[in-house]
Computed example of a mutant assay.
Amino acid sequence: MAFAPGLTFDSSAGRWPLRSSSLSHSLPPYRHLSICFPSAKAADIKADISSASVATAEFDFKAYMLEKSASVNRALDLAVPPQLHPKLMHEAMRYSLLAGGKRLRPILCIAACEIVGGVQAFAMPPACALEMVHTMSLMHDDLPCMDDDDLRRGQPSCHRAYGEPLAVLAADALLFLSYRHLADMDNYPSGVPPALVLRATAELSRCIGAEGLVAGQVMDMESTTDDLNKSVDIDRLEFIHRHKAGVLIEGSVVIGGIMGGGSDCEMKRLRRYARSFGLLFQVVDDILDVTKDLASNKTTYPKLLGMERSREFVEELLCDAKSHMEDFDPMKAAPFLQLLNYGKMLLSH
């Protein structure tokens, strides 16, 4: 299925002139352990990244993350006012939504909008919607019928604080609020084309449903077993990682690019960056949690590939993700490159 006609924001004119587009909303997934480059291409990538290193070094990553997360938190606070009724349900929604966190997904959404020429105001409504969806997924994950976790972000999980029935309903309410918040044109500056919002809504639906997050959760549940003789192969593990967590990261970047009016080529590069970025952080997480995961017989990349090959895979994903940033403005690409460096840095500590 192809996207609706593409739109590119003209910053000098303050509008999006219509332009034809044939970009498909989905790309074939990478095969595991198949990310590689011919030597000439790898040399070009290294040179391009080196030329951007000065701009990246001047970029204050910590200040950027703090400023963007503060903006997102203010918008989320306004999106779910405390005085609404039923009061206890909205209290539970705010309890989980405003409990903290890095706000990685909304920040990626805003950064992707800005890298293709948009501004933060275009991306803030979908950024908030993405964080609502992410929070909903965590509330569901914590339930006794799922992971049965008592704590989330250093405080009792929602079902422990408000009871299981209300936690389920509050999570459902956040999910539906996310769509309303994304689709409400009153949340956007004047002149934002409804066609962009429609495309963003379709992308969010794909990321959440049977093609995305829900599919990953189901596969994860089916793969959780105490039977030491029942194995999960690398294809299944990659599917789980890409869909349970990676797909919402992909959606965040793609939706931001949509709202900024990204071109076909820009959208393709953003999507591929996000796919490698999302899987990279899952593999890093597997490596960091290797002791705990082995004790629980959880299938991970280190378990299937070994620690050394898993670290090599991280480097391959890192190289691939960086390659998709090479044609963007270095300063606007800096958040994306610094996030990759952060993922790699975690392995050195």
Rank of each mutant, 00 (worst) to 15 (best):
M1W: 06
A4Q: 13
G6W: 00
T8Y: 03
S12Q: 15
G14W: 10
W16M: 00
P17R: 03
L27P: 01
P28S: 10
P29I: 02
H32W: 10
P38D: 15
S39E: 12
A42G: 07
A52G: 15
S53K: 12
A55C: 12
E58W: 10
E67G: 07
K68C: 07
K68N: 06
S69F: 03
V72Q: 10
N73S: 14
A75K: 11
L78N: 11
A79S: 15
P82F: 09
Q83W: 12
H85V: 13
H85F: 12
K87A: 15
H90V: 09
H90T: 10
Y95G: 12
L98D: 08
A99H: 01
G100Q: 12
G101Y: 07
A111V: 02
E114R: 08
G117Q: 12
V119K: 13
A123W: 02
L130K: 02
V133A: 07
T135F: 00
T135I: 06
S137R: 02
S137M: 04
D141E: 05
D142H: 06
L143W: 06
P144A: 07
M146L: 09
D148G: 06
P156E: 06
A161T: 06
L166H: 04
A167G: 02
L169V: 13
D172E: 12
L177C: 08
L177S: 11
H181G: 09
H181M: 02
D184H: 09
L196W: 02
L198R: 06
E203D: 10
L204S: 07
E211Y: 09
L213A: 08
A215K: 12
G216K: 04
V218F: 13
M219E: 14
T225G: 08
L228M: 07
N229H: 14
D233Q: 10
D233Y: 10
I234V: 14
H241A: 10
R242Y: 03
G246A: 06
V247P: 00
I249S: 01
E250C: 06
G251N: 03
I255A: 08
G260E: 03
R271I: 03
R272D: 06
A274T: 04
L280S: 01
F281D: 01
T299G: 01
L305E: 02
G306L: 02
M307S: 03
D320C: 15
E326P: 00
D329N: 14
D329H: 07
M331Q: 13
M331G: 10
A333S: 15
L337I: 14
G343W: 05
M345F: 11
